[in-house]
């Protein structure tokens, strides 16, 4: 249910005028709560930024999140992260 909670918090922040981007570990739930912008990542529960001690991939994920914030114009959009 973490993905629901994150999406609902993001919605409240956007309503207050703060831009958000949410990592999604379970697309089905992120879609249900209509998170404002979400990046689906290919990792297991507990690993939203991938493997431990892998700053290269962590930075790639953050860059993808920033790209979403700078370009997405439609609420509810979900991108799929590919670390290659």
């Amino acid at each position: 249910m973490c993905n629901q909670t994150a999406g609902l918090i993001a919605r409240a922040l956007e309503e207050a005028g703060i831009s958000t981007v949410t990592i999604s570990l379970l697309r089905e739930v992120t879609e249900k709560v209509k998170a404002p912008r979400a990046l689906e990542v290919p990792y297991g529960f507990g690993f939203p930024l991938g493997r431990p001690n892998d700053p290269t991939v962590q930075h790639k994920i953050l860059n993808a999140l920033f790209e979403m914030v700078e370009t997405v114009e439609t609420p509810g959009e979900i991108w799929l992260f590919d670390e290659r």
């Binding site: 922040l13 309503e15 207050a16 703060i18 831009s19 990592i23 570990l25």
Partner: peptide, 20 residues
């Protein structure tokens, strides 16, 4: 959630990253 939005606004936050 609205309380944290208000606190973040007071802290001049422009962007929040959410991690489940």
């Amino acid at each position: 959630a609205p309380e944290v939005a208000q606190l973040a606004t007071q802290d001049a936050v422009d962007l929040a990253i959410l991690t489940p």
